[in-house]
Nucleic acid binder design. Structure first.
Lengths: 248, 248
DNA sequence: TGGAATTAGTGTAAACTGTACACTAGCTTT
DNA sequence: AAAGCTAGTGTACAGTTTACACTAATTCCA
């Protein structure tokens, strides 16, 4: 297999876009570049893939070195490999994103982590390389994902209010949602556990706290449910005969 | 930038899964491997990415060498890079798929193309490497895609009947569809041009022929319409005030 | 040549889902 | 005790999806 290394000798990396949610805003962790090219610019966290390391493993390593976090939601998005995307040579990058609970994030002692800072996704401009495009692709995938599966919880603290959850969806989808319809829909998934607790220290009526029923969700997944946000656990109303599937 | 080539020196390839539609069945073009490893097994078409070649370009090259076709629908799906996916060394592969009109395909004179053969997607078993998994990922993406955008036409000849179109959707979605509902939905997209022609040489009532209105579709896309299959061109019924977006 | 065979083509009603919309409840602050 | 703030709740209408069965047009064959 000596043709290996003849055709492709360039650098191979992963970028791991780290999303968080804070102050009602979707955030992304960016690194201030300390070296050329693009010295001083903000860039997405990433690193080379080691020869004996799977891609997912490399992405997790990037995350952990930056945040100390493990067991985090991770999604591969797309691979960017335009010939001239790096001015110093050919670099091919597999883009991932991670969803973390920003409250669990502690700045790490590594030199790279010290250069990291949260930015509002909506205000990011002018990143190094083609990182703006990569961020856009990841953000779009996240938008799609949040409509398809209950991943929003990955970004919230374990206990949250429905209003917080709604603000999260609004931040990701970049739209306003109707409060009553949102609650109806979310509660109809039957994946929230009402903790029978309320907020404390707020200067108004305190809201109920909920947590995500991860066990139930994973049971559903294991049973092969596709689990769109659409699906509602209805109680066997009129079981009308269904012989054929239909579109959309 | 001498760190290049220190971390990652392995092979970098694209696979391009070529889908076609024939005899009411979704087909995939597979190559019979003439060499180790997996000699004699069926495999997905793919090749190394050249150093000065974009990923999409490499995928198009793979397609063209095999089929002679250009300007074909191409979609990047996912990158496969498990350490041990190739027994002879580290190989990272970006998986693409292409949708071609099988009637336009002519066997090419190259030696590789002579080893290519169409297989029913539903009957594929036991491919080389992790190609079964790659095929599965591409097929799933195609399923999603066909519900989101009118790409099915890429797989049909320029003139087709509604029944042919329905069979295509059924093959991709692996389900039966209701004839009347399917027609209603497809026609409500307003993207089919009724050619005022009918089939010839069939032993029953001939069906009307349609073609896909590509110009109209591209105009919509350019205007930023998301264009889900769901969208129907309704004629401004009761324009009820809408102040807020809602979920799903 | 007429009837059998085959596929094309068509509408409606009921169920379900999505959307718009406004008031009361409960807590804190002054 | 009133003002300020956010939580929490239901209903009606519009739109979409689904189930379902007969007539129409052509060829084939006896």
């Amino acid at each position: 297999m000596n043709e290996f290394n003849e055709y492709f000798k360039s650098a191979f990396t992963v970028d791991n876009i780290i999303f968080g949610f804070d102050e009602g805003d979707l955030k992304v962790l960016l690194i201030n570049r300390g070296e050329e090219p693009y010295k001083g610019k903000w860039a997405l966290p990433g690193y080379f893939v080691y020869p004996n390391e799977d891609l997912d493993t490399a992405a997790k390593r990037v995350l952990e070195e930056l945040t100390g976090l493990q067991n985090v939601y991770l999604e591969q998005v797309r691979t960017f490999g335009a010939v001239s995307r790096h001015p110093f040579g050919r670099v091919i990058t597999v883009a991932y994103f991670s969803l973390i609970k920003i409250s669990h994030y502690n700045i790490q002692p590594s030199s790279i982590a010290k250069k990291a800072k949260w930015h509002s996704v909506s205000q990011v401009e002018d990143l190094a390389f083609d990182h703006k495009e990569i961020l856009g692709a990841c953000f779009n995938r996240l938008k799609w994902l949040v409509r398809s599966r209950p991943v929003g919880f990955e970004l919230l603290p374990p206990k949250f209010t429905l209003t917080e959850l709604q603000h999260l969806y609004e931040a990701i989808l970049e739209t306003e949602l109707d409060k009553r319809n949102f609650r109806k829909k979310i509660l109809s998934m039957n994946l929230l556990i009402d903790l029978d607790e309320t907020q404390e220290g707020v200067a108004h009526r305190p809201a109920r706290l909920y947590k995500f029923d991860k066990e139930k969700y994973e049971k559903f997944l294991a049973e092969g449910f596709s689990f769109e946000l659409k699906e509602s656990k209805k109680k066997e109303k009129k079981p009308r005969k269904k012989v054929r599937a239909n579109l959309a």
